[in-house]
Design a protein around this nucleic acid. Structure first.
Lengths: 345, 345
DNA sequence: TTGTACGCGTTATCAG
DNA sequence: CTGATAACGCGTACAA
């Protein structure tokens, strides 16, 4: 039953109770070897008894280090991102750091606001997955690029730490897989072109098409932010509502995220289109659902554990070991073959 | 190109540049009507030009309100929890609040540590889903119960705000559903009994058994923290590895979370046990995977949007409208019928 | 309309 | 070994 309801207990108030100066208390609490063993003990006891909690705000103000890490992502509900959030918050909590979470909702102006509120709290490090390839907002971090981890491909103007998924390669493998299975007329679902990952993905896709001598003009593109709805609506729009046939001959879908794919699943179910018999599909992410869906979705696995670990590792090396070196990791997605693609001629 | 690399720009430094006192600057920046329109304008311009950012730590120290909300949950990777985190962080960000995230990993001592670090940051509100029915840790919040939202059933000793899922009813419906489909010999997967939700769930299950005149002694219980592994291992352990038959006659599984159910799916697939032909199963949570699994999982839907909304609503009424009233919501899960249960006699 | 002075809870420096 | 004292950046009574 520690002292509660009391006005805030501070080093000053415990100093008064003990009849010593507050600076002695401060030293005692910080294990300063200069204070007598006995007084230190008395102070600690009193502190415990009163339920003293150091005020992190005051600490931060004084020491210019807030023991916080700002994390700014888009859609923290996406399992890959959530995994990163969890890893970071759990790892850093061990060292007394706390994680400040922001979701930019794929919106540039929200991202900017998030960045400003984060910065006003003097974070020791910042992790950000930028909304856009246009890195304007990132310049707000210019004072602390060396303590910033960016989760996207590198920006020349931004000398920060990077943990990057090679979406170019991901797109390449996705498309190649479809093409090798005989699918040369695909619908491609992809994020809006301003997204940092989007053009990379498409570059990879185009390369695969080129290598297979298939014209990229034949593809139908659907752009949208990651969600089931986009996949669902996208497929519906490409179908003739009466005949339930594709308006343009199509045998496959290349999705730049699994959510798109699941939206397609849903639409296909509605229109009696069988996967993979009538329509083959490849996803991207290896969302936990992918293995359990009907049929299990062939998709590209993103090593989210590795992303999270590298990210966390960089943070800890900065925060704990004061490592000044800027680091960059590039990770490769790989194919997970399941049952959503049928080989045709 | 705002002034960067500069030493921190503070109200003091912008005051110097302008040749006015820093308190004038402070007032101007806070829209104090007492300052002349013109000076206010000059101050704002200078501030913008210099890239001034208010120091939240200093503000908080001074005003005793940190504009933060601490959120302490178990397993923030769980979709229901993630949804809450997202909703809170997005809603509060609009008002300039930032969300402090902690994951207690179902561990009492970690929860305690999280609580202490949160409190040291003087949060304006706290949201917590307690690890244990033993509410010891919660007493740390006694100074601010009225600004605390607890996501679990009510504790008599803790007069806080509550948003509660009625797991008793959830367990009742789960079991009733199985029993009505002829499954009276079930394996029950539940969280450890110290979990706030666990005993409630079981109470509901027992009631259903009783109403159906089925002895509860026949059930096999498997306890574990929510994870695929527990479900997987649990089923494996109950099977004879040679005959691939259940050691004890069993036709159904009642899982207190979908992750258990998916673990069972996986084990069943490994041993050639068909769901629902050989084994019926009901989950709990309506994880997004549930609709997409093979077969789609019959489960109990948790109104996570409602939980998150209520939670967010309470926070905003406290933070913005300074509403002193303590509120309590109880929400009911409901059955989502899909294809993982087969009716037998 | 603007400036002065003080305090929020710490840490850190310097005397005693 | 302990105690004053200043400073971190900001808000706010009060004085000018």
């Amino acid at each position: 039953m520690a002292g509660k309801s009391e006005a805030n207990v501070t080093i000053k108030s415990i100093a008064e109770e003990l009849g010593v100066s507050f600076s002695t208390v401060a030293k005692a609490l910080n294990n300063d070897p200069l204070v007598k063993e006995e007084t230190r003990e008395r102070v600690r006891e009193k502190a415990a008894q009163l339920g003293y909690l150091p005020n992190s705000l005051a600490k931060g103000l004084r020491s210019k280090t807030s023991k916080t890490v700002g994390v700014i992502l888009n859609d923290i509900e996406n399992p890959t991102r959530t995994h990163i959030v969890k890893k970071i918050s759990v790892d850093l909590a061990k060292y007394g750091y706390t994680t400040l979470i922001f979701d930019s909702l794929y919106d540039l102006s929200i991202e900017r606001k998030n960045l400003l509120t984060v910065l006003s709290r003097l974070p020791d490090c910042v992790v950000i997955s930028p909304v856009s390839v246009h890195a304007e907002n990132l310049s707000l971090l210019s004072n602390m690029y060396d303590r910033t981890v960016i989760l996207s491909r590198m920006f020349d103007a931004v000398p920060a730490n990077y943990v990057h998924m090679d979406h170019r390669r991901g797109g390449y493998i996705s498309a190649k897989t479809m093409l090798e299975n005989g699918h040369s007329r695909n619908i491609i679902f992809v994020e809006p072109s301003e997204f940092p990952s989007s053009d990379q993905f498409l570059e990879g896709v185009k390369q695969a098409y080129q290598e297979h001598g298939v014209s990229f003009n034949e593809v139908m593109m659907v752009y949208g932010t990651p969600s089931l709805e986009v996949g669902y609506q996208g497929l519906c729009d490409l179908l003739d509502q009466n005949t339930r046939q594709f308006k343009v001959p199509t045998t496959g879908v290349i999705a730049s995220c699994d959510l798109f794919a699941f939206g397609v699943y849903r639409a296909a179910a509605k229109f009696g289109i069988r996967i993979p018999d009538d329509l083959s599909i490849i996803g991207y992410d290896d969302n936990p659902m992918a293995a359990l869906s009907t049929p299990p979705l062939t998709t590209m696995y993103m090593p989210k554990e590795a992303i999270a670990s590298h990210c966390s590792e960089i943070l800890i090396s900065k925060l704990i070991n004061k490592d000044p070196v800027i680091k960059s990791y590039s990770l490769e997605p790989y194919l997970v073959q399941r049952d959503s693609i049928k080989k045709i001629n």
